[in-house]
Amino acid sequence: MTLSMDGMRDIPAGSMPKTGPPPGAGLSDWVGRKETVTGCVPVTSAIAIHATLSRPYLDCPAAGDPMPALWHWYAFPSAVGTCDLAADGHPRLGGFLPPVPYERRMWASGRLQFLGDLVVGEEIEKTSTITSIEEKSGSAGGMVFVEVEHELRGRRGLAVRESQTIVYLPIAPEFSPPPRKMAPTRDLVIDIRQPVSTALLFRYSAITFNAHRIHYDLPYARQVEHYPGLVVHGPLQANLLLAEATAWKGRRPDRFSFRGVHPMFQGADIHLRATQAGTGRLDMCTVAAAGHICMQSKAEWED
Rank of each mutant, 00 (worst) to 15 (best):
D6N: 10
D6E: 13
D6Q: 11
D6P: 01
M8S: 03
D10A: 08
I11A: 00
P12L: 03
A13R: 12
A13V: 11
S15L: 04
M16K: 07
M16Y: 02
P17Y: 06
P17C: 07
K18N: 12
T19Y: 07
G20R: 00
P22C: 07
P23C: 05
P23R: 03
P23M: 03
G24R: 02
G26W: 13
L27K: 10
L27G: 14
L27F: 13
D29P: 05
D29E: 15
W30E: 03
V31R: 10
G32S: 11
G32W: 10
R33A: 14
E35C: 14
T36P: 04
V37W: 10
V41P: 00
V41L: 02
P42Y: 06
V43S: 15
V43K: 13
V43T: 15
T44A: 11
S45N: 08
A48V: 12
A48H: 10
A48P: 01
H50F: 02
H50E: 01
A51L: 06
A51M: 05
T52I: 02
S54N: 11
P56F: 10
P56D: 12
P56R: 12
L58D: 14
D59K: 01
D59C: 05
D59R: 09
C60M: 12
C60V: 11
C60K: 01
P61E: 07
A63M: 06
G64L: 10
G64E: 12
P66D: 14
M67G: 05
L70I: 13
H72D: 14
H72R: 06
W73Q: 10
A75K: 01
P77W: 00
S78V: 04
S78F: 00
A79S: 12
A79L: 07
A79Y: 03
V80E: 09
G81Y: 08
G81D: 15
T82K: 09
T82I: 12
T82L: 11
T82Y: 10
C83A: 15
D84H: 05
L85I: 11
L85E: 08
A86L: 06
A87D: 09
H90E: 04
H90A: 12
H90P: 06
H90F: 04
L93V: 11
L93W: 01
G94L: 04
G94P: 10
L97F: 04
L97A: 08
L97K: 05
P98K: 00
P99W: 11
V100C: 00
V100I: 14
P101N: 13
P101M: 13
Y102G: 11
E103C: 03
R104I: 10
R105S: 08
R105F: 09
M106E: 08
A108R: 03
A108N: 08
S109R: 07
S109Y: 07
S109N: 12
G110L: 09
G110Y: 04
R111A: 15
